[in-house]
Nucleic acid binder design. Structure first.
Length: 495
RNA sequence: GUCCCCAUCGUCUAGAGGCCUAGGACACUGCCCUUUCAAGGCGGCGACGCGGGUUCGAAUCCCGCUGGGGAUACCA
């Protein structure tokens, strides 16, 4: 190995000029992580090469498809920043075309009617399984004479239409896995039209991909074994065979297929947890792809620039929510508060902060944005500026209780602060430091209980910023209340 | 069962036969910065699944094993 044009023994895929890619989810649930990642790679390829991103909703399974889900999927894609140039096309509306094309194959002798019943097939399948070999449709009905067929049709016997697979190896170059080779005994004559005349998935995708002039198909690994079926079908229908790339699955921490039991698996859930769309996009893009250097936090344009299908990984990746949270923190840190606001609004509302003094809110958000992992957390951190404190962190209060001087110190500080003409950071700090010097105590002895009094928490933004933002009235009230709390706790402790 | 795919720290990854004493990131952890928290800086812990080849030399190429995953529908 090592010749140019190869990477890990996989021949590089050359892509020239504009591409036509598609994302074709079935609306049987919310858009899940595997789905977004597929959409993201299609998006990156499309943005990089130019061309079109086609959104096609594969809603042919009416039993499981839901119109609301179709809207959800679009909303999720828009939210995360994947935009489509064409569509959404509903596959269910295209069924007559698919059927028509299948009938053409039948007429052309490239497909045939099969009258075998499901029971018969089931029995054959069981028999083959018992013998330890793979089941292939034994082509019972391929040899049927014209008369036999006509007679059975006339009888009204139900039939499916099967595609006659070629007896050759099917070879193709997979963008992520390299050269694939499927021997003829691995494939069988699959069904194109069901006995009710409806086209199967295989028929629909291939017709649609031809019709929509799709050039590159990036999809999940679960389709890898469908591809050798689809390729001869493309050919039989006279279509251009697109270039395929099959993405590995995303796994849960147990290395099994990602499932609900490990928390959120849909885009909506991450949105509701306060994850920023760009962070999720960035994170998912890196789950199975890397720019080849050490960059991790990347702007979308930067990812587009660096994107190459040759750098798509063939091995499955475990989804790590801790790292997503870290990445989201990075985005919280670097995104201006003003830019964050639209995303933050629903969380503020949820926290009951919709009708609050806007200047104070803005100041509080500015203070807490660099300390929050998620939008939801940010909204929650800002609540104490506007609503009464539910209580004080008991573990963190323990040390203030030990120092009997604290209540009086806090009262003095409160009075001096109240006397200030204006609560500015500078004045607040000068006042506190002067008091600490006067009383011969370290500044921390005043700072920590004051923070606890005002915010109820042991951590948070620098104290003087906190006080300035809360304002005199809140400061006064909370200092008084905390002093009372300390005295009561001390009294209870002694008696 | 059969077919197919995959295999580097716990996790995401870099690695294109000598640049590898295997690099980066998350997590964990020590120190620093600091009024606290967060962020940040500097360290630490920590991996080429196993066995055979090929080669002067293998994480890298080949074979086997093991492990994991997918597919085996008139579902998509």
């Amino acid at each position: 190995m090592g010749s140019r044009g190869e990477r890990n023994g996989i021949k590089m895929t050359e892509i020239h000029g504009p591409v036509r890619v598609r994302f074709a989810p079935s609306p049987t649930g919310f858009l899940h992580l595997g789905g977004v990642r597929t959409a993201i790679y299609n998006d990156l390829l499309r943005q990089k090469m130019g061309g079109a991103f086609i959104l096609r909703i594969e809603d042919t399974d009416k039993e499981r498809s839901d119109e609301a889900m179709t809207r959800q999927i679009q909303a999720a894609l828009s939210w995360i920043g994947v935009h489509w140039d064409e569509g959404p096309f509903l596959q269910s509306e295209r069924l007559p075309l698919h059927r028509e094309r299948a009938e053409e194959l039948l007429a052309a002798g490239k497909a045939y009617r099969c009258f075998c019943t499901q029971e018969e097939l089931e029995a054959q399948r069981a028999e083959m399984q018992a013998k330890g070999s793979a089941f292939q449709y034994p082509r019972t009905c391929l040899g049927l004479s014209r008369e036999d067929i006509d007679a059975r049709v006339a009888e009204g016997r139900p039939f499916v239409v099967r595609f006659q697979m070629p007896d050759d190896h099917i070879r193709f170059h997979d963008m992520v896995r390299g050269d694939m080779d499927f021997p003829p005994d691995a494939l069988d004559d699959f069904v194109l039209l069901r006995s009710d005349g409806s086209p199967t998935y295989h028929m629909s995708v291939v017709v649609d991909d031809i019709d929509m002039k799709v050039t590159h198909v990036i999809r999940g690994e679960d389709h890898l074994s469908n591809t050798p079926k689809h390729i001869p079908l493309f050919l039989a229908l006279g279509g251009e065979v697109p270039t395929f790339g099959h993405l590995p699955l995303i796994l849960g921490p147990d290395k099994k297929r990602l499932s609900k039991r490990y928390g959120a698996t849909s885009v909506e859930e991450f949105r509701n947890e306060g994850i920023l769309p760009h962070a999720l996009y960035n994170f998912m893009a890196l789950l199975g792809w890397s720019p080849g250097d050490d960059r991790e936090i990347m702007e979308r344009d930067e990812m587009i620039q660096a994107f190459s299908v040759d750098r798509l990984n063939a091995s499955a990746a475990v989804f790590d929510r801790e790292k997503l949270l870290w990445m989201n923190t990075q985005y919280m840190l670097k995104t201006e508060t003003a830019e964050l606001r639209p995303h933050l609004e629903p969380f503020l509302e949820q926290a009951g902060l919709q009708d609050v003094d806007p200047d104070r809110l803005a100041a509080a958000l500015e203070l807490h944005r660099p300390r929050a992992k998620t939008l939801k957390e940010l909204a929650e951190q800002v609540v104490p500026y506007f609503q009464e404190l539910p209580g004080y962190d008991p573990a963190a209060c323990a040390k203030f209780l030990k120092d009997p001087a604290v209540p009086e110190l806090l009262e003095t500080l409160r009075d001096r602060y109240t006397a200030l003409p204006e609560l500015t950071k500078e004045a607040l700090e000068a006042g506190l430091r002067a008091l600490s010097e006067e009383k011969g105590v370290k500044a921390g002895v005043l700072i920590h209980p004051t923070r606890m009094a005002l915010s109820g928490a042991a951590g948070g933004p620098p104290l003087f910023d906190l006080v300035e933002t809360m304002g005199k009235e809140v400061m006064e009230r909370r200092m008084t209340r905390f002093v009372a709390f300390l005295r009561e706790a001390a009294g209870a402790g002694q008696g």
